[in-house]
Structure formats: structure tokens, C-alpha cells
Design a binder for these strands. Structure first.
Lengths: 114, 114
DNA sequence: CCTATGTTTAACGCATCCGTTAATTAACGA
DNA sequence: TCGTTAATTAACGGATGCGTTAAACATAGG
């Protein structure tokens, strides 16, 4: 009932079928039936998983005739990783130095290619 | 019942109280009571959250007298981000180039400071 | 229109999650 | 030894998650 955005995103990622769906969508848009094909579960079950992913903002959907196409929307993954980055210093000793370097490069790049 | 490791990790992160506990532990080890203090829920509830975090490998625990201290173990966060990195190219256009640069720097650094 | 195809909704069962309060365990210390 | 403090386990209730099958809906197309 809290249902903050980050919780919804992580909960959506906490199911292997949904992660499998995202992996498939990384290769291109797909219909519900196409997404269901690799899994040994019913179509309604897949339909629900898609609704969860959509609610988390991880996919967007469009309809064309009787087909509903899903496409990956990675924005929430950026949010999730952004949250985890706060802990990165704990598991990557080189992070601070490399990150600083990265920022320098990025800033330079932005100056050269505005 | 699948309970692959990644699912357990993401599920553990899908609760705001547990993320709050991790945030607190990022500032240093703490006892159960200390961890419970900011939250308006009972001690047994916190105790369960800690068990979930421990099961996900996100914390390790030690006992000293009647106090049980928890400490952050960020390794699973690394795994989770590693999974998400597969999608990074979708949300960070500069990723490929910057990553290449990063690797070059890293390799150079390792040569210079073995 | 009628039917075939793709997808969703409805209704249900079962397991797990998250919280509670009460009881129990563990260890310290007067 | 007895009481206090720290934490966990037990037992329960309600909500949510994930699966099923059957029914409904939407659209193309003869």
C-alpha cells in the first residue's frame, strides 16, 4: 500500500518470467503470443506479467489490429541503478577515481559536441 | 518456488523499509533496535526484514553479548546492477563509447599500479 | 454476419508477504 | 539467582502474487 515507484520497479524485476520478457524485448518489439512462446505458462498469465511491467513503466504497449505490441522502456532501470549507485563505493574500490575520470570525459565531450 | 538468486535480491529490494535499513547500514553497522528506531513498526517486523536481507546476502550478522549487529554486504547489488547493465545501452547513448574509454583507463591504471 | 485469431477479464485456489501481540530464548549484571 | 534488556519465534489475520480454466472482447476478413 506504500507503493513508491522504486518498490514497484524492483517488484516487477523480482520475477524470472518478467525478466525473461524484458530480455526478449531487448531484441525488439513483440506481441503477447510471441512473448509467451518460450514459457510454459498460459497466455492470461503472460498478460498479467505484461500489465505489471507496464505499471512499472518498464514497457509501453501499442495496438495494431488484434495484436498488442510491447516495447522496452528502460527508464525505470536507470532509476533503479541510480539508487544502487549510492552503494557502489562499497563494492568498487576504483569507483570514485574512475567516476571522476568519467565525469571529466563526459564534460569534455559535451563541450566539444554540444 | 523458482527462487533464483536474482529474484531473491530484487524481492528484498522491493520493500521501502528494507531499503531504508540498507541506507542506514551504509553509514555503519547497527543493532536491531537501532535499525528499528526510525520506523513505526514492531521489533519482530524488523527482525523479519533483517532475515530477508540476510537471505538475499545483502547483510551479514554477528552477535556480541545480547546484541546482534548487522553490516552491509553490497555484493548482491553488484549482481543486480550487472544484470541491468545489459540494458544500459538502451538508456545511455554514450555508454558504449564511455565504457570503452573507461576500460582503457582501467587497463592503463592496472599496468601502472600492479 | 459469422467465424477465426489475439488478447484480456473474471473467478477461483493456493502460497507467500507483511504486520500484529504474546511467548520464548539468550546473555548481562546486581 | 533473579530481573532486565535484546532479539527471535509462534500464532494469527489480511492483502497480494501467481497460476489455472472459462468466458468475454476486439478486430480482420471471407
Amino acid at each position: 500500500m506504500a507503493e513508491d515507484r522504486l518498490s514497484v520497479i524492483f517488484a516487477a524485476l523480482a520475477d524470472p518470467t518478467r525478466r525473461g520478457i524484458l530480455a526478449r524485448l531487448a531484441e525488439g518489439d513483440a506481441t503477447v503470443s510471441e512473448l509467451a512462446e518460450p514459457f510454459a505458462i498460459s497466455l492470461p498469465a503472460i498478460s498479467r506479467h505484461l500489465k505489471v511491467l507496464e505499471h512499472a513503466g518498464l514497457i509501453t504497449r501499442s495496438r495494431s489490429a488484434q495484436w498488442r505490441s510491447s516495447s522496452l522502456n528502460p527508464e525505470p532501470l536507470r532509476e533503479a541503478t541510480a539508487w544502487m549507485e549510492r552503494y557502489r563505493q562499497f563494492w568498487d574500490a576504483n569507483f570514485d577515481r574512475l567516476d571522476a575520470h568519467l565525469r571529466r570525459i563526459q564534460a569534455q565531450t559535451e563541450r566539444n559536441e554540444p
